[in-house]
Design a protein around this nucleic acid. Structure first.
Lengths: 246, 246
DNA sequence: TCAAAAGTGTTCCCCTTACACCCATGA
DNA sequence: TCATGGGTGTAAGGGGAACACTTTTGA
């Protein structure tokens, strides 16, 4: 079998043919979105319930097919907007591509998943049959979607520690208490607001806006309002060890 | 356009059709290997020179098509063995999938790249038209392969710091001086053997075999021989900050 | 005995963590 | 003035980096 792509053209939608005349197979390709957000102090993933078989009744990741004229990132953005009405994705990155031959019983489909993060204050009453499911209490999921979800959560938790991804889970402005809630929910354990402030400030991830928020009805000192200094992914702690010499 | 895959079967090699009768396009899919190894104290990538257009004469990553009955990992393993005679891959992980519509002028092909690591003592006189190219001095490369190479190097450098991936670049047994050479080459800057030993020992990544190696002709104290304690990928320094409470 | 190579000990410094203490507000 | 929630100061501990010093060999 000749597998290196050389010579004459390879047509989309058909089996390709290389210059030796050997068939070059084609596969349908789907994109899936693992959309995470903190809802009611829990890290949640957006799932919708399948109405049809196979896997009828199970919870699945939103997504769909890759069209001939679009790229993977464009495809997942489109599907999330159209199908589950998600428009406020603050961060989107590719996770992995799965290729098990029988991952879909109807025939072979390759799947590329993306990790998408949505701020906790983004509106989104999700459409019918779609909900925010806490990742610590997942129902039975369809196909191999569970692997993608686990990978996404793991990736997020790791990146919270050495990048500023937190911005993608947080509102534009927030108090330290709110940020602590978000980060604790995302990581799955409590972090102290004291040190969270210090670490994030030292790394210049967050900065005070100057404003303060009104205290609750029980009183208390008004909280300072912060914002993320940058709202694009930045690596803030590049190397743990083996740093380059200064 | 209906893009969610539901209902009737989707055939490989053909355009699929979902239950609404809307076409589900298929694409050829190739796998590429970014095979890295330290050669003569330089981090190198295995490239082969294209003999045919397009991109004739440019250096390309080894790889090839995905067959109907195999998965991506199997495909890249097969291609590396058959085409560039690489059998001693100590670590293999998926890097990314590129989907630019025009990434290959002959027609649309999706590409998934893998990062492969080969120990520095693996034989491999590479086949004709194939060489180990230092990543700091790359020639002009074909298609979008340069992006994959850069991503691979970046991934390796990051993981050297918080995992034991080093095992995949090192021989079974080695002295600290040899390990220092490898790590320095991979990272692109000198690391001190003193602290390298301490860090890797504390994390139980390496352990002495008890043997010593003969000194060179100029004399000198014989070096202790070490090995990696585990030869599978292990995360040794999970979180830089925001650790869970003890 | 000297040079070369390898390994160890010690110190410094920065960062994270823990925790006590102080500040601002509503009732 | 008290309870409540927020923020700051300070000390402890760990780990990595730097560097001097010791050990072991060949010539």
């Amino acid at each position: 079998m000749t597998t290196q792509l050389e010579g004459d053209g390879v047509g989309v939608q058909d089996s390709g043919t290389d210059r030796l005349g050997v068939a070059w197979p084609s596969y349908p390709h789907e994109v899936l979105g693992v959309v995470l957000s903190v809802r009611q102090s829990q890290l949640c993933v957006l799932l919708w319930r399948r109405r049809l078989s196979p896997q009828r009744g199970r919870w699945a990741l939103p997504g769909g097919g890759l069209s001939a004229d679009e790229r993977l990132r464009g495809a997942i953005t489109r599907h999330l907007a159209v199908k589950v009405d998600v428009h406020e994705i603050a961060h989107l990155e590719q996770l992995a591509t799965h290729s098990a031959v029988d991952r879909d019983p109807r025939g072979r489909v390759l799947a590329t998943a993306y990790l998408g993060l949505v701020p906790s204050d983004a509106d989104s009453e999700p459409p019918p049959d779609t909900t925010w499911q806490p990742v610590d209490d997942l129902p039975q999921t369809a196909f191999d979607h569970r692997f993608f979800i686990d990978a996404a959560v793991e990736r997020l938790r790791a990146k919270l520690s050495y990048t500023n991804v937190g911005f993608a889970l947080a509102p534009q402005e927030f108090t330290i208490a709110e940020l602590r809630d978000l980060v604790s929910a995302a990581l799955g354990y409590q972090v102290s607001p004291t040190n969270l402030t210090r670490v994030m400030t030292r790394r210049q991830m967050i900065e005070p806006t100057g404003a303060t928020s009104a205290p609750g009805r029980a009183g208390g000192r008004p909280a300072a309002v912060y914002r993320f200094a940058r709202r694009e992914l930045t690596i803030t702690d590049p190397f743990a060890v083996l740093k380059p010499p200064r």
